[in-house]
Design a protein around this nucleic acid. Structure first.
Lengths: 254, 254
DNA sequence: TCAAAAGTGTTGAGGCTACACCCATGT
DNA sequence: ACATGGGTGTAGCCTCAACACTTTTGA
């Protein structure tokens, strides 16, 4: 079976089994090496990248479908996943141009709706736990630095921008740290995350004071060694107090 | 043509001309007489109420469709309208029970999808300018006090709750006052609005100090007379400064 | 004259910002 | 030894919350 046949079969199945005209796109954020990252897929035999996405089975909750897409691309379950915008413009992108960049015959001869509306989700994941996994349409699935994205298909550049804007706005009310950091981390590492999301530096003393003052962290008896400098303490989140601080909107580092 | 025929014709047109399986519901907030209000429709020949909603034409932007629904029910254009949640559970409500309450034969014999996903929008409108207008399916369209809602069809009770929660969260970043108040209003009246949204009383002196300190209001040379008490000054919003205050997130009365 | 709501300032507490030096570690 | 980043405290400012009396108006 050729790749094109596979694709046609896939889209035929989608047409039959999924909600028509509605898709979802996931902006999966990770954090590594002081940088905010996004998980992208490269389409087979092209140099074109896009967000992981998918369709909703006719008897499936949309949120569940988003969780499924996420699980398939990251290997992780029970992730922090949040609706952020419905992309419903009549013309979201240049369809012909897109099919050309994908080197595909338009529509594979099947009855595909003229326009697709897409629900945008963002996810916050622990970079160290993710196993990026390509699907049958892609030959690569990997992390990209948020500030060095490749050219993206569809309106995915726009979708990422909206997701990032939402993330910044929700920083104080969402468990950004809890979900993006590995289990054990140092306070300066957490500060780098906040700086990466906000896009500007924060004062180390004030950050330390604030985050420890909220008692959302538990200091471990371990330190991170290996740097040519004083070894910082490792911390874990105290999830109970973290939830409390979130509810109070106290995790703001403006 | 009987009412049932009209309905069948309508749903046939929707099936043909609209995006399938996706609808939208609008929670239209108004403010009157110290109370937050929602605009509801009563279905013909029943005592069942629901939110105004509609479908999206195949070549229409979803946001535009929401604006259209809103214009048809309020007579107003260019309203403040905001996506807030996609209601996409596989089973959102008891379908059979709903059709029974509507006293309708299910599906009118047409090919209607088994489940509908709905995008929730909320709107903030000037109560005094709205002309509530029923559609052909409803025999009443009117304002209901948010704390004294009737029994609602579908999952509309839930949708209103989510909308209200969103409104509270966004109070500091959205032009709540600007859109819900009439052109001229007094500071105590604006305070009542904030109290209605937040669901708790605010201190008059602190409110006055804060709101005047932001220079988002212009005091007019008029006063509201008629009450058996001191006549309060009338104010208008200074839209330029209002936008600035919103951007800075300064309109918070926590 | 009375009832009802409008208008108005001050004070204390807590949170935020700005700022500089010493310490621990690996090279 | 030295370079690198980690850890730590204080002072001033600003914002917020709490709080009561006088004024105006219509009935």
């Amino acid at each position: 079976m050729t790749y094109i046949d596979q694709l046609r079969t896939y889209y035929e199945r989608v047409t039959e089994e999924c909600v028509s005209g509605l898709s979802l796109d996931c902006v999966i954020f990770g954090f590594h090496d002081t940088r905010l990252k996004v998980l992208l897929l490269k389409w087979k035999d092209t140099n074109e990248w896009s967000l992981p996405g998918g369709f909703i089975y006719k008897n499936e909750s949309v949120d569940t479908a988003a969780g499924r897409v996420l699980r398939e691309r990251t290997g992780l379950d029970q992730l922090f996943l949040q609706q952020f915008h419905l992309f419903g413009d009549a013309v979201r992108y240049d369809i012909e141009d897109t099919w050309q960049r994908l080197k595909m015959p338009m529509k594979y001869g099947i009855n595909w709706p003229d326009r697709t509306i897409s629900m945008g989700y963002y996810a916050l994941v622990d970079y160290t736990k993710v196993m990026p996994t390509a699907d049958f349409m892609s030959d690569e699935c990997c992390w990209w630095d948020i500030s060095e994205l490749p050219s993206l298909l569809y309106d995915h550049q726009h979708i990422i921008e909206v997701a990032l804007k939402t993330l910044r706005l929700q920083l104080n009310w969402q468990p950004i740290g809890l979900n993006l950091m590995p289990e054990k981390f140092t306070i300066p590492e957490l500060q780098r995350l906040y700086e990466a999301v906000l896009g500007r530096p924060l004062d180390a003393r004030n950050f330390h004071k604030k985050i420890t003052g909220l008692s959302v962290l538990t200091r471990l008896d371990e330190r991170r060694t290996g740097g040519a400098h004083k070894s910082p303490y490792l911390y874990q989140f105290d999830t109970v107090n973290y939830q409390k601080a979130l509810i109070n909107g106290n995790l703001n580092f403006v």
